[in-house]
Design a protein around this nucleic acid. Structure first.
Length: 399
DNA sequence: ACGCTAGGTAAGGGTAATTATCATGA
DNA sequence: GTCATGATAATTACCCTTACCTAGCG
């Protein structure tokens, strides 16, 4: 029991298309017109239309209006996680404001958290937004309100907090601000804890997935996406998926299980792909060609491509982290310094080991999905089609 | 009197950090 | 055998955007 055929390695050829990489990052993803801005140029922010910069920093544009402006006026704005550079810009702007107006910490908190006061100092939000290029004021607003909240980042939830939360929701319903006041955690954190851990707690399953569960999840996701012409990497509603799983697995569990494991297996025609040196080589060169100043500026959605498509954006991002950590002293190095080392470290495609016929040790089965996977005669077709030309020998050599 | 917008709150959708366990090769 | 290093899997706190609503201003 528990034996699987040698894993099929990542064998898509390192063709020119793989290394002919986008040197641009998508900035606005709203609407059908994707605008890009060349991130390789230092100070690229200056390319922005000054009128647009003013608009972003002063008008509280909602999603629809932003989409309209992108479409009609070619507005460029930035979405997604704040990079380390943006955090720095924001921190500096807030400090500067506080210093200029000679505000105490308490007064600053007051400005950030006062409600419904039309006489408030609106200059604050505009000014700090202006310091972070391409971000709309509302994004800055939400970000700062979260990061400066006195109840932010309290770590793991204790049992008594869960009890308190459950009771609060029973009494008050999903009015998170009121619940927050009772529990002593931010409203959003209460909501998260509730939906991710309190709901269906009695029937929630943890630990390794059974084969049946994996099959069920695969069926649900493919029904929801592929069978309707949608993208299983992007168009999945995980709350709904969790519901369809009968609530036994939460939305986060389902999502991670799919993106990190099952989706690759589906793409690889039922075979579990294995990360290899060649993949590391491709990844390093892809990231290198982005010419970003810092890895927090990488738009991971742009890294996967059609010729190298087994790995999800999320997986690649985590792969990158592993690669980065393999560089000694990476904590004290700049992105460029790390890249310089990795470029050399991964300068060449791995050469096949001398004993190509050496049988690899069978992998011990961790996931139940791997059990009962007979050595499939269709393997030959697989090698010849989806993954380019590779035979068993080169498969082995990928490691 | 009313349309409009700032902005508060909840919902929807997503990722990062960490831990545990296993695989592999020197 | 054993040690170092990396791969895989799972968990959960934390994050970002959008939807919806309403007070209050012009």
């Amino acid at each position: 029991m528990g034996l699987v055929p040698p894993a099929v390695g990542q064998i898509s050829a390192a063709s020119n298309t793989i290394l002919g990489l986008p040197s641009k990052q998508t900035v606005a993803s709203t609407g059908s017109h994707k605008r890009t801005i060349d991130m390789s140029l230092p100070g690229n922010e200056q390319h922005t239309n000054p009128d647009h910069a003013h608009l972003l920093a002063t008008k509280w544009l909602n999603a629809n209006k932003l989409a309209d402006l992108v479409k009609e006026e070619g507005l460029v704005y930035k979405k997604g996680k704040f990079s380390a550079i943006e955090e720095q810009q924001l921190r500096a702007a807030i400090e500067n404001y506080q210093h200029e107006k000679e505000l105490s910490d308490a007064q600053l908190q007051e400005i950030i958290f006062t409600k419904n006061d039309r006489n408030r100092d609106n200059v604050f939000w505009s000014e700090i937004t202006a310091a972070v290029p391409l971000r709309p004021i509302i994004a800055i607003y939400h970000h700062v309100r979260r990061t400066h909240h006195p109840l932010t980042k309290q770590g793991s939830w204790q049992d008594h907090e869960d009890v308190l939360l459950k009771q609060a929701v029973t009494d008050l319903g999903q009015q998170w601000e009121k619940v927050s006041a009772r529990v002593g955690r931010r409203a959003a954190d209460c909501r998260d804890r509730y939906r991710n851990h309190i709901v269906n707690r009695e029937i929630r399953v943890t630990g390794p997935w059974s084969r049946e569960e994996e099959d069920k999840l695969t069926r649900i996701v493919t029904d929801m996406t592929l069978k309707q012409g949608k993208d299983p990497d992007n168009d999945v509603f995980w709350g709904k998926v969790s519901e369809l799983m009968g609530g036994t697995r939460g939305r986060q569990q389902c999502r991670i299980k799919w993106t990190d494991a099952l989706s690759k297996t589906v793409k690889n025609e039922g075979q579990k792909p294995r990360w290899g040196q060649q993949d590391a080589y491709i990844l390093v060169h892809k990231i290198d060609s982005l010419n970003v100043r810092d890895d927090t500026e990488i738009d991971w959605k742009l890294i996967p491509d059609a010729d190298w498509n087994l790995w999800s954006a999320h997986t690649l991002q985590r792969r990158w982290l592993t690669l980065k950590k393999s560089v000694k002293g990476y904590e004290d190095m700049t992105h460029q310094e790390i890249m310089d080392i990795l470029r050399i470290k991964k300068a060449h495609l791995p050469t096949p080991p001398s004993q190509t016929n050496k049988k690899k040790k069978e992998r011990r089965v961790v996931s139940a999905a791997s059990v009962n996977e007979p050595s499939d005669p269709k393997d030959d077709e697989v090698a010849g089609s989806a993954n380019g030309a590779a035979d068993d020998d080169s498969t082995d050599s990928a490691d």
